[in-house]
Write a protein that binds this DNA or RNA. Structure first.
Length: 885
RNA sequence: GGGCGUGUAGCUCAGUGGGAGAGCAUCGCCCUUACAAGGCGAGGGUCAUAGGUUCAAUCCCUAUCACGCCCACCA
């Protein structure tokens, strides 16, 4: 026994058990007593990254649930994977190639560059998966998939071709967010709007055939070269007379119509708007409405092209300066006002985004969105916490068609082919080499790739073998789809949750998951976002090394409920490390008596009051944990077991067991050891989903020979036979008295080691006999050498310190030197407090309206408290009197 | 600008129409043979502010302030 360390050291234990579980196939789904399946598809982390605190939270919540359900006898599958993360990965590799070889991707053939990305993926792609093992992730790694695997590609092509043939995928001129650094369109969601100091430039446009001018205000004067109209509000009296006339653009002197549109706000700027459909989102829409020409004046790298003649070759910044100069020379610049406004920046490249018109592929999502909304409205898919469905709805109720093409190299290439001979265009799931119409071999595939989220949207079913029948059979699609729950952060409800719903409903006819648990986002202890620039991240790997995976998991779980943020303070991890150690030491305590314990509990009627009590408390805890985990309240579950361990098992049950185990009554020793072990086993099982390693280790010492590993033991549940309410109430009194005695001792500075005399005055038979049977325990726990128990009606001792609890009065006769002054001060303070409480109740009872309106039980309760407090006050006053004599 | 959310002890957060809670931190006393990564005890809050509904509000309603996030974007 001496070889068991005083402190729990996690490292070897963690890797030992992970290996054992893995090699023993314990992570593989197996049919169990629940006769049902439970499946979580892991949100695939990007191949670019390494594990951060967000992944750790993901992994902890998912693993806790999977382990919980596995123990409950579900056929539990946690399916891991990785995401190719198009833009992110390509730019990481581009950066690396630039650093190593000073080359850009354009210095390579496309195929060669893609090969480089694959190499990179092979080398670094598994980092997160390996790190997840350190956290104890119990996924079935054989199911592992990568979003660019051939199987995933098959699903992507199948979906694309079906949607294409249905006419839902179309190509269109569209104004998109163009990232001039990445050379790609990016989605609205990838654009970050930042405040920038800019200016309003007031410019004069001549009205053709008159001497008049229109004053236009713009933040982007350089785009005037692409103007195709000037626009005013149809009811703006100032400009009525110009509508239908022609304006002349300064510098290039092109003629454009003056039109009217409701969009124009008469209050803003000059109330007169230049319309540049090629370079502004709103202008593009006005252009569509009025069938205006689109003039593109920028190249893909955001320099001016031939349409921007006087600025050709310049970038936007230089162009703006130049055009301002030209306008000034021409006398057509009225004024420049400083102005702060929002400018879109690329999420990843940080470049200023240029709205640009180009041909893109779109997915019409109108019908799919509608269905996805209905599904949540009808609660066929439920959000936890429910509030998040608003976020989901707000996106899907006014859906914009999804721009699914990206001008990248890394991703699923769009399976559309063009014939160079007959202009045929078609989509195909196969690699085509001949035109489907004229059989020409001169064909090209669309060079664009699909938005990363396109393949992510198919993830719940592509990972389970869809669309290949044999694969679906092998992967047990029928068993696991729809999956049970999706666990993710709120930041990707639009990107991912909504799109999985759309695609899942469309292609499988079912919701891809029954519920979605949205967990919090991890922030630092000040509530700031974790960011590289702040350097405030908490490295999970370091944390695990320092405090153990279990402590980290417990910290994350205890912070995960229906909240939005977890402000992670390293001090909390220390606290839960200590908790793990507490559990470890609880085991160390009972280890020496394990041999004496029996495999089965004795007949329940033979148990003593404290044994019944701990079983009842355990039972309550099991109920709370089951109920909480069922609805993703990891915080409640953690709290329940934490309190059970500290406040019930360790502080009281172990302490109460000491005299028995050190005593001479062998049959009592055996019985107590048996109960101690029984409860510890259940406790460890309850904890296992949250802290798998330490519990599996302890289990190996306390399990019966024939029992298997803890990971597949039954999860403890509420059992009616352990419902000992009477013993729980008695124990409450018992602890109240002991705490009261300790409290009194401390108030008069009696040394903890000094034994004292105590007199209890009790008002009822039942309690009296309870305290008499448990006299010895009480004396040990409160360091009492002489205890007398009397009826409340008996005379009280003269000089003594005193405290009143709900059913009894505690007296400690004065002896030796005690700090009377301190004690009296405390009594007076208590008196004030009680007096206040009394007044509150008294006031209520004297309020006729209260008596009239309040519920009966509330009135009864107030009356009871009123009496209770008033008798406490009397007793207290008497006691204070004694000291004043 | 629109939407969502938050404001409770020094910190991080639970919670409820009828007696303000936990963990950590703080203070005091203890190295009591499971554990000093421990034990025992204590202090600490006008439940953001102002109104309203109610017999009764920290909780429900309204407004205000502060903070956070998301969406949209002003020429």
């Amino acid at each position: 026994m001496s070889e068991i360390s005083k402190t729990y050291s996690a490292k070897e234990i963690e890797s030992k058990w992970y290996q054992t579980w893995l090699e023993g196939g314990y992570f593989k789904p197996k049919k169990g007593k629940a006769n049902d399946a439970f499946c979580i598809i892991m949100p695939p982390p990007n191949v670019t990254g390494k594990l951060h605190e967000g992944h750790a939270l993901d992994a902890t919540t998912q693993d806790a649930l999977i382990r919980f359900k596995r123990m409950k006898g579900f056929e539990a599958l946690w399916l891991p994977g990785m995401d190719h993360a198009g833009i992110a990965t390509q730019s990481v590799v581009e950066k690396m190639v630039w650093e190593q070889e000073k080359k850009t991707r354009h210095d390579f053939e496309k195929e060669d560059f893609i090969k480089k990305i694959w190499q990179w993926k092979e080398e670094y792609g598994g980092i997160i998966a390996n790190q997840q093992r350190l956290l104890g992730a119990s996924c079935d790694w054989d199911y592992s998939m990568f979003t660019m695997d051939p199987e995933a590609n098959e699903a992507v092509r199948k979906v694309f071709v079906d949607l294409y043939n249905e006419g839902l995928i179309y190509q269109s001129d569209y104004i998109i967010n163009w990232d001039p650094v990445l050379h790609s369109a990016i989605s609205d969601a990838e654009v970050e709007h930042k405040e920038v100091q800019g200016a309003f430039y007031h410019i004069l446009y001549k009205v053709k055939g008159t001497d008049e001018t229109l004053e236009v205000a713009t933040t982007r004067p350089e785009t005037l070269l692409g103007d195709t109209a000037v626009c005013v509000h149809p009811e703006d009296e100032r400009f009525q007379k110009y509508i239908g006339k022609t304006a002349i653009i300064p510098i290039c002197n092109r003629e454009i119509p003056i039109i009217a549109d409701d969009y124009v706000d008469t209050e803003k700027g000059t109330g007169c708007l230049k319309v540049t459909p090629g370079h502004d989102f709103n202008d593009f829409e006005i252009g569509q409405r009025h069938k205006l020409q689109i003039i593109t004046i920028l190249n893909k790298d955001a320099t001016f092209n031939e349409n921007g003649a006087p600025l050709q070759g310049m970038d936007v910044k230089a162009g703006r300066k130049k055009i301002v100069e030209l306008l000034e020379e021409a006398g057509q610049l009225v004024k420049v006002e400083k102005h702060v406004h929002q400018v879109g920046h690329g999420d990843r490249s940080k470049a200023v985004i240029e709205p640009l018109v180009s041909k893109q592929w779109f997915l019409n999502v109108q019908e799919m969105s509608k269905r996805s909304v209905e599904s949540v409205e009808k609660e066929q898919m439920k959000f936890f916490p429910k509030g998040w469905e608003n976020t989901y709805f707000s996106w899907l109720r006014e859906p914009k068609d999804w721009c699914i093409s990206r001008q990248l190299w890394w991703g699923h290439q769009i399976p559309v082919f063009y014939c160079n001979d007959c202009d045929n265009q078609w989509a195909s799931t196969e690699e085509e080499s001949n035109c489907s119409k004229c059989n020409s071999s001169s064909i090209t595939q669309d060079p664009d790739v699909l938005d990363t989220w396109f393949s992510s949207a198919l993830w719940p079913f592509s990972t389970l073998g869809w669309p290949d029948e044999q694969r679906m059979k092998d992967k047990k699609f029928e068993t696991f789809y729809p999956t049970t729950v999706l666990i993710t952060g709120y930041d990707i409800i639009f990107f991912w949750v909504a799109r999985m719903m759309m695609m899942g409903l469309k292609f499988t006819g079912k919701e891809p998951f029954h519920s979605t648990y949205i967990h919090a986002i991890v922030r630092d202890k000040f509530g700031r976002k974790i960011s590289k620039s702040l350097g405030n991240g908490i490295d999970p790997i370091k944390t695990i090394e320092e405090y153990s995976a279990d402590a980290f998991r417990f910290t994350l779980a205890s912070g995960s409920g229906y909240n939005r943020g977890i402000n992670l303070d390293p001090d909390r991890i220390v606290g839960y490390r200590n908790f793990i150690n507490k559990v470890w030491n609880a085991f160390r305590f009972i280890h020496p008596v394990l041999e004496k314990s029996e495999a089965q509990l004795p007949e329940l009627s033979k148990l003593d009051a404290h044994e019944k009590w701990i079983l009842a408390e355990l039972n309550t805890t099991a109920k709370t944990m089951n109920d909480s985990l069922e609805v993703f309240r990891f915080d409640e579950a953690s709290m329940a077991i934490y309190q059970f361990v500290y406040d019930k098992y360790c502080s009281w049950f172990i302490e109460l067991s000491k005299p028995i185990l050190n005593g001479n009554d062998e049959s009592k020793i055996i019985q107590r050891a048996t109960v101690l072990k029984f409860v510890l086993k259940k406790m460890v099982a309850l904890l296992h989903p949250i802290t798998p390693f330490v519990t599996e280790e302890l289990w190996s010492f306390i399990k019966d020979d024939k029992e298997d590993l803890l990971i597949i033991q039954d999860y403890p549940e509420y059992e009616e036979q352990f419902n000992f309410t009477k013993e729980q109430n008695e124990m409450n009194q018992f602890t109240e008295v002991i705490t009261g005695i300790r409290n009194l001792r401390s108030s008069v500075n009696i040394k903890p080691s000094e034994e004292i005399e105590v007199q209890l005055f009790i008002d009822n038979e039942a309690s009296t006999s309870y305290f008499k049977t448990n006299e010895e325990s009480l004396q040990k726990m409160a360091k009492v050498n002489k205890l007398t128990i009397e009826n409340k009606s008996n005379a009280r001792p003269e000089k003594s310190i005193f405290m009143s609890t709900s059913h009894l009065d505690i007296f400690i006769p004065l002896s030796g030197v005690i700090d009377i002054e301190a004690h009296v001060a405390k009594l007076n303070k208590d008196l004030t407090k009680l007096q206040k409480e009394f007044d509150k109740y008294d006031k209520k009872l004297h309020n006729p309206k209260f008596i009239e309106n309040a519920k009966e039980e509330v009135i009864a309760e107030v009356k009871f408290n009123h009496g209770e407090v008033s008798s406490k006050i009397n007793a207290l006053k008497e006691n204070i009197e004694l000291f004043n004599k």
